[in-house]
Design a protein around this nucleic acid. Sequence first.
DNA 1: TCTTCGATAGGACATATGTCCTCGATTCTA
DNA 2: TAGAATCGAGGACATATGTCCTATCGAAGA
Lengths: 232, 232
Amino acid sequence: MKEIKNRQLVQSYLQAHQLESIFNDDIMPYLSLYHFEQGELILSQGEPSKYLYVLVQGKIKIYTTSAQGKTLILSFKTPIEVIGDIEYVQEIDTINTVEAVSSVYMIGVQHTLLKKLTNDYSPFLQFMLTIITEKFYLKNNSMSFNLMHPVEVRLASYLLSVIHDENESILSGQLSTSSLADTANLIGTSYRHLNRVIRQFCSDGLVERKKGFILIKDREALTTLSGGNIYE
Amino acid sequence: MKEIKNRQLVQSYLQAHQLESIFNDDIMPYLSLYHFEQGELILSQGEPSKYLYVLVQGKIKIYTTSAQGKTLILSFKTPIEVIGDIEYVQEIDTINTVEAVSSVYMIGVQHTLLKKLTNDYSPFLQFMLTIITEKFYLKNNSMSFNLMHPVEVRLASYLLSVIHDENESILSGQLSTSSLADTANLIGTSYRHLNRVIRQFCSDGLVERKKGFILIKDREALTTLSGGNIYE
DNA sequence: TCTTCGATAGGACATATGTCCTCGATTCTA
DNA sequence: TAGAATCGAGGACATATGTCCTATCGAAGA
């Protein structure tokens, strides 16, 4: 973690994401910009939490580790996203581990200052409410989805949402294979089983396995299979 | 649903749960008290939502139904609890079905009024934040728990938490058998499999099956098995 | 170039869990 | 009270998923 001391930059990030209105003038001077390198841990499960972060650039990965050492990826996030909100409101230790997937920039504020300076500032409270309820809703969705559907359906759904995401640009239907282990965790299954299902998809002509990535061949069929449910 | 027109009663419920401070005087006149009979539906998944409710007496059950008609119980709730909060903030249709498990009393307010009259009232916003983050935290916990542990562990954990709950009083280690089907849904498995696991527990001497209920015999062992994780 | 190592896919097997169905006990009804 | 309707428990089987291990391949190094 490295603090970027550039008030100008903080401002421009706030502007870019239309966040100026949610912070009042009192707190502004205390907003800092931090940079995390790819792979760096931003928060560690179980540690005391002191900062509330707003993800303004890059991609992060959130996961939890059970007492038995099993790890479960909860989600990937891209801007704009608030991190450490639950901990801030509940005043508890860090719940999940957060890791930078790419080079990441976050705006951070100390809990104590934030509480002192904005606890009665409605726009901020409303913003927090909106963000958190949205999170809640999405999380809930994907979790029950996991619980109620076989891996097949989850994978189909996952593929579709990844395609949406990254493919807007160029790739048009490819999934990097390097992240397969992560993918397995994310949809709540083992790497082995994921492979099994991919194989199945291949022989059904839904996707094709290329060197290093997976190619979507039949988007229609995937959509049908996913039953309209999409991880979002 | 029956409205109880008794301003006095509303007040005493608010008082009992220390909720007076979160509502301002403007909104007070619009708080209504509603009664639901056992088994009655309070909210139905997919319908437009117009009210925000606060559960002040009784017990409710929250569940979701997938497109394929599968149902998954998300939780049981007792006072004090807010219902319809996500829908209120996000302005979306009802997410989950809510059903009265016992005779239930709830305080309800119309979204439109609430938004108009308290949207800038910090105590209310703070209250909502606290409630929602707490919900989020608990839900998250139990969901990842489900995903990461076999039914065996979940059942042990569930038994313990139920015992805590209801047994404080008299029963001291019994679980009514009537709700087994619900229990199965709650811990995310089938009735059949639940039975299988109970049977296993019996032969291991952890519990005993009596006519109509299940008797906890070895709390120690259950605690060990649950690995310290408890549904809360 | 040959060897070694790490990574990935897939085989074999064990387990966990779901579905369907039957059996016996209980309750309800005429 | 007999028969019908229910309900809960458990058997048999099918499927989904996990674990462990091995074969293969390409990259890195001697």
